[in-house]
Design a protein around this nucleic acid. Structure first.
Length: 568
DNA sequence: GCCGTTTTCGGCCCGACTGTTTTCAGTCG
């Protein structure tokens, strides 16, 4: 906006990305006396600024920069459809410096009157403004889990009296977004723990405090309630803190049928009034003569009936999944080398992995040109030999263009073992166009699976509009698998759509969309979604052992349809 | 702002898509 060289901006963006993906924290590296300029993409200027941030928690350069602009400008830039040029223009030419003024400028037609603007652009921006207004201030699960991990470590570090910190509430239930973070501290000295809450890093205010709980707000706006629970009787307390309320209510009914009253203290015998306490949730479920139910399945639906009948125990587990079929390396926009990714996958016990770097359409993601794809394919086989003990499939994540055509030719695709086709552009198409586009891609005989079908980013980007049922049916007919993308930002397909797709006969795969070795762990999240979609082993293609899967891949796509669905 | 075994200055920055235009500017990923 200041008219400086775009390369300067890019240098900062690249450095920020590099730092966020470092295998160790920059703070720790500086503490160890390491020189950040040795990292590619970080020179003297950015290393100095990083050091200032680490030392003082502030950056004078950034503070001065922010002071040069009206405070509403960043929010304007965040509106999809408003980029650098248009933001600058509405500010300088129309005097618009916040969302309200922008909305007014659209209503008077002032925005549409700007050069190269028009009715349609203005309408799109208006819709985007309304969406950014409606955006909840809830935390997406990816952020909530990260904050939970940080807080857990900080509490354990500061309070030696705490035996364990147990995540509760929406985070433990794996809700897509949560209002607040709920933590249970297992301790026999509650006072000292609640007293220490205000010393947590980033603490802003104490909102509520009671005997056994404190609700605090952090500078980031995140709200956290910390409960203290007694180790000897924590079972029922944790159950209540995890919820959800519907699930707890149903458990209460089951308890009543067996002559107990369930409370956060334990089970009281209705006839004698004697209270039985539990040191853990497992023993409580056990006492109610039923299997333990994982927090993410406590939805207040019919999970208790399903657990008792044994149906929940038939659902797919992480151990059942034999491979990852969506992973990036530093050939495109991944952080780590192919060999490192494959070694990590092997270390996690996978039998096979497909390396699916981006296709040429993803220019900025360093997508692979035809020539580089050929080299990539050779590299895959080389890494397979080098690492050993794990099959490595030659793959791609290829763009589905606006008209349903794809980036690579049939002749090239034929040479690949596994082809994921995904939408990364023109996400605002009208439903019928979008549906047609995706079905066209599925009709390609070489497209093995559709990646992150809805393209949503939780809390950030709405899913595409399409006739999902038609897509699920076409997936079943064409033998195209649908992905349950376990990346925390996506979780796409989502649970309800997984269930629907399965019922309509579509084949499913669980993948990580990993861009780093650590994120190969996303498989765990994909499994949670699959379980909520009531998937069993047979519903998930990559539960097949390597040999069987590779044999199956050699079949003509339309004859690949496996016996899935219909077990309801 | 970063980088460099030919370079310490001059490259780096791609391609699809939309909506506006009659040839392309702006946005996005």
């Amino acid at each position: 906006m200041k008219g400086e060289k775009s390369f300067t901006v890019r240098a900062y963006q690249r450095a920020a990305r590099t730092i966020s993906r470092l295998p160790s924290e920059a703070t720790d590296m500086l503490a160890r006396g390491e020189d950040l300029t040795e990292i590619s993409g970080i020179g003297k200027a950015i290393a100095d600024k990083t050091a200032e941030l680490v030392d003082t928690g502030r950056l004078g350069f950034l503070d001065r920069l922010i002071a040069e602009f009206p405070p509403g400008i960043p929010a304007l830039m965040d509106v999809p459809g408003l980029g650098l040029k248009t933001t600058l223009r509405v500010w300088k030419e129309l005097g618009v410096t916040d969302l309200d003024q922008l909305e007014a400028a659209i209503e008077t037609g002032a925005l549409a009157a700007l050069p190269r603007m028009g009715r349609k652009s203005a309408d799109n921006i208006l819709r985007a403004v309304q969406f950014s207004r409606s955006k909840s201030n809830r935390l997406p699960i990816s952020r909530a889990l990260a904050v939970t991990r940080q807080l857990t470590a900080a509490i354990l570090e500061r309070c030696s009296e705490v035996d364990r910190v147990i995540p509760c509430g929406g985070v433990s239930r794996f809700d897509e977004e949560v209002e607040e973070i709920v933590l249970a501290c297992v301790t026999s000295k509650p006072k000292s723990v609640l007293g220490a809450a205000s010393s947590l890093p980033g603490f802003a205010a104490l909102l509520v405090t009671r005997d056994s709980e404190s609700t605090i707000e952090f500078e980031s706006g995140v709200r956290v309630t910390i409960h203290v629970v007694d180790p000897a009787t924590q079972g029922a307390a944790i159950l209540y803190l995890i919820g959800n309320s519907g699930h707890v209510q149903l458990l209460g009914q089951r308890a009543a049928e067996q002559g107990f009253e369930l409370s956060e203290r334990g089970l009281a015998d209705i006839s004698t009034g004697v209270l039985e306490t539990f040191a853990g949730e497992e023993s409580l479920y056990d006492r109610l003569e039923m299997p333990f139910i994982r927090p993410e399945e406590r939805l207040g639906g019919n999970e208790i009936t399903q657990a008792v009948s044994g149906d929940l125990s038939k659902l797919v587990t992480l151990e059942d999944v034999k491979s990852d079929l969506h992973a990036h390396t530093d050939w495109s926009d991944g952080r780590d080398e192919m060999a490192a990714m494959v070694r990590e996958a092997k270390g996690r016990g996978l039998e096979y992995i497909a390396i699916t770097d981006h296709s040429s359409g993803r220019g900025i993601a360093n997508g692979l040109s035809l020539e580089r794809l050929l080299a990539h394919m050779a590299a895959v086989k080389e890494v397979e030999r080098e690492v050993g003990g794990i099959k490595v499939l030659r793959g791609t994540e290829m763009d589905i263009r606006a008209d349903g055509s794809v980036d690579y030719s049939d002749d090239l695709l034929r040479e690949l073992d596994w082809v994921v086709a995904s939408i990364h552009s023109a996400m605002g198409q009208e439903s019928s166009v979008m549906t047609e586009r995706i079905i066209t891609a599925m009709n390609n005989p070489h497209v093995s699976a559709i990646g992150h079908l809805s393209t949503r980013l939780i809390g950030e980007r709405k899913p595409i509009e399409a006739d999902y049922d038609a897509i699920f049916r076409a997936a079943a007919e064409t033998g195209t698998a649908l992905e349950i993308n376990g990346s925390l930002e996506r979780l796409d397909l989502k649970d309800a759509r997984v269930e629907r797709a399965r019922k309509l006969g579509a084949m499913l795969v669980i993948t990580t969309d990993a861009h780093t070795t650590e994120s190969l762990g996303n498989l765990e999240y994909g499994v949670k979604v699959a379980r909520r979609g009531l998937c069993r082993v047979d519903d998930i293609l990559n539960t097949m052992p390597a040999d069987k899967f590779i044999f199956w891949l050699k079949l003509d796509k339309r004859s690949r349809i496996v016996s899935s669905s219909g077990h309801d």
